[in-house]
Design a binder for these strands. Sequence first.
RNA 1: GGCGCUAUCGUCUAAUGGUUAGGACACGAGCUUUUCAAGCUUGUAAUCGGAGUUCGAUUCUCCGUAGCGCUACCA
Length: 495
Amino acid sequence: MIKTRFAPSPTGYLHIGSLRTALYAYLLAKKKSGHFILRIEDTDRARFVDDGVANILKSLYWAGVVPDEGVVRGADGEPSEAGENGPYTQSLRLPIYKKYVDELIANDHAYYCFCSAERLDEVRKLQELNKQPTGYDGNCRNVTREEAEARIKAGEKFVVRMKMPRTGETKINDLIRGEVVFKNELIDDQVILKSDGFPTYHLAVVVDDHFMEITHIIRGEEWLSSTPKHVQLYKYFGWEIPAFAHLPLLLNTDGSKLSKRQGDVSVDDYRKKGYLPEALINFVAFLGWNPGGEKEMYSLAELIQDYSIEKTAKKGAVFNLEKLDWYNKQYIKLMSAESFALACWPYLAKAGLVPNEVDKKKLSEIIPALSLEKERVARLDEITTAVGYLISEPTDYPPEILVWKKSNRTDALKNLELIQGFLSEWKGEWKKEILETETKKWIADNGLTNGDILWPLRVALSGLEKSPGSFEIMAVLGSEKTLARLKKAITKLSA
RNA sequence: GGCGCUAUCGUCUAAUGGUUAGGACACGAGCUUUUCAAGCUUGUAAUCGGAGUUCGAUUCUCCGUAGCGCUACCA
């Protein structure tokens, strides 16, 4: 069985780029009926964020990228664990790492290093000055085991470094990039155990991926350069080397690595703004991967169906918000009136337009109003301003906007009075189609133009320069509110 | 500086050793129209540069250029 994993470090909320990485790992696993594992890499104690794990889980589940194994969401909604090869949180695996560090040292594949930060700094500065490749100079390789043990016993701070071979080369066969070759002599003796007793990423990732039986490592391109270190560790341990796939990066508009400075990067930010998970997944999946056809809309199930890692792009992709908006609009249009209303509820509640708790009666009441906007909004958070006028009466719009561009204030007032008269004597059924045909007939019969009447009418009802059409609004509002708003507009304009 | 990766419309991408280099977003125009949105029709727009291989290269090779990543006791 193939196993893939997503291994974020909880140093913040789930990044949109990480979501894509997780998605690809998930798709590959699902495509091949394998397992997708979530492992938490919390070895960096300095950058640890308290609710990081909770947020990562929440965002992943929201998006539908649900782990089969590892850290999962428990019945109570809190993080818990599933699977045979745990724990799946690195800070809980310290003894395991210790054991394998000791093994490397015993086999002379790693050594204790006592160099101070200051010395390391100096070495690097000198290397830079002489335009030499930077890296550890191997100073502590010469320290004997006895001396090292004595110094440790004396309380000296130390780290453990892996011994990189000084000759030969390491070849990587990347699923996306093909063969990549590195000269061993240019690769650093990487620190694998920090002075705080925690392993670094490089050691932990190899040990965990091995014991968690990961077959395909899918991760960002930023890891490509350190892969030879990982390969060397696999060789030292005598473990089977998994397949690697290094994904291209997600980019800002200026081509740099996607960052907070230039906009929202957390999945949660997008959720809050009213992007649907389907839209975000579809969009993000197509940033660096494409099945080849001309179909743009892909559900998660269809993505699994058509996924193949070979079709992954090699080039970084700019995160293009306009296209995301387009996707979101498409998926909103696809929703039923009711699920759209339900999705909008929290936004309306926040604006005080509806109670916090979903109320069945109120829900069915607002569905007609919301449906007017379902085809129009790009994001759910736009709904409050978009339908606010339907739920509560608009009062503070400037009277000038009641005047059509081809008309003037005097005529607008006159026309409002005319339509008010016509509608107050309405005998027919108050339905959109009937209202529309009859009103338009009346307009024509009286030698008026649609714009003369319909523009001020629409603004009187909505208080907005841009809104759905007059007849749709009238149908939602009913005759009483329609007439009341017309009256208000007439007052406004005659003031 | 070193090492590595990458290079098709503004953006996301498709395609092939031979095509009018296709689609989507965005943008422009037109239709529709009371506004916006939607819809329909339509337009502008790309193979980084130079060599080589070849009858033929955007596609294969090399060089250059540019961008990006890594170069931490961060991941």
